[in-house]
Simulated scan of single mutants.
Amino acid sequence: MKIKKILNNNAVIVQEGTIEKIVIGPGVAFQKKKNDIISKNNVEKVFVMEDNDDYEKFQEILCTLPIEHIKIAEEVISYAEGALMTPLNDHIHVALTDHLSFAFERLKQGFVIKNKLLQEIKALYPEEFEVGLWAKKTINERLNIEIPDDEVGYIALHIHTAKMNRKSLKPSLDVTSFVNDVIGLIESEFNISIHGKSIAYQRLLTHLRFAFQRIQEKEPFHDIDEEMLEVIKKKHKKAFNTAEKIGNLIKEVYQFDLPISEQAYIALHIQRLSEK
């Protein structure tokens, strides 16, 4: 592999045929210069990025961020791809590395990291959260930095976004915020604290997650038998009233009219939760 550009002692850009690659390895560029050949024995990781914006941003990251931050981010990404058994979007190399480095600096300066969506992230993305917990342990071992579970939640969001082959966190944040708003409204109406590990809570979360996907993608909702609808309205009046308020919230925030059939299904979930 012939060096095209040296980024630092541990990272270079190489040219192989018509393809440019970013190569990382300890001391891979030590005492090297442009057009020198590097041995594959010194290479830890090779990156080929199709997105030119990501390619340029990753070069900037390699030139500016501490190498230990870059290496720990890459370790987390590699572990996530193995644990989730799926490749992640290339943008994760930019987004997660930059996020982690910034978080480490904030923690060193004494800032407290808070994540108001933590409970919903844990419930909606349990596999990604487990990856985040592995990252927490590994970061502490490698860098002696103790990250809070709130930060683990942010790592899980980045992992989930890349798993869904997206670059932007917005869709993941939108559904998580939506669920958080709905849960908060139910807790307020019934004066209860919803247990995050209960089966009723998990079922409601699953239902809300798919409901929000239908809202985002403008897909039709399932119908409900008229007789069953009337039974739910009468038998579970408070739960149905709360579901109606959720419908009003969705209309206000997302400009979407939630069908009465969907409000009825949500009311059933609310009723189960309130009984617990």
Rank of each mutant, 00 (worst) to 15 (best):
H99Y: 10
H99R: 02
H99W: 05
H99I: 12
L100G: 02
L100C: 03
L100F: 01
S101W: 13
S101G: 06
F102P: 00
F102C: 15
F102Q: 08
F102R: 15
A103D: 06
A103L: 00
A103Q: 02
A103P: 00
F104R: 00
E105W: 03
E105G: 01
E105N: 09
E105C: 04
E105T: 14
E105V: 00
R106Y: 00
R106E: 05
R106D: 07
R106V: 05
R106I: 09
L107N: 01
L107T: 07
L107K: 14
L107Y: 08
K108P: 00
K108Y: 01
Q109D: 12
Q109H: 03
Q109Y: 09
Q109M: 12
Q109G: 00
G110E: 06
G110V: 09
G110I: 02
G110C: 04
F111L: 13
F111Y: 13
F111E: 10
F111W: 12
V112Y: 15
I113W: 03
I113K: 02
K114T: 12
K116A: 03
K116I: 10
L117F: 07
L117S: 02
L118C: 08
L118H: 04
L118S: 02
L118R: 15
L118G: 12
L118E: 06
Q119C: 11
E120T: 03
I121M: 09
I121R: 01
K122N: 06
K122Y: 05
A123W: 01
A123V: 11
A123S: 14
A123K: 08
A123I: 06
A123T: 08
A123M: 15
A123E: 02
A123H: 03
L124F: 11
Y125T: 06
Y125D: 07
P126H: 12
E127I: 09
E128S: 12
E128R: 14
F129L: 06
F129D: 08
E130L: 14
E130W: 04
V131C: 08
V131S: 04
G132E: 11
G132S: 12
L133K: 13
L133F: 08
L133V: 12
L133G: 12
W134T: 06
W134F: 15
W134K: 07
W134E: 03
W134H: 13
A135R: 00
A135N: 03
A135Q: 03
K136Q: 11
K136H: 10
K137C: 04
K137Y: 15
K137A: 10
K137R: 13
T138N: 09
I139S: 04
I139C: 12
N140K: 10
N140T: 07
N140Y: 13
N140P: 02
E141C: 04
E141F: 09
E141A: 13
E141L: 10
E141M: 15
E141P: 00
R142C: 08
R142T: 13
R142Q: 05
R142D: 12
L143Q: 00
L143A: 08
L143S: 08
L143I: 01
L143R: 01
L143T: 01
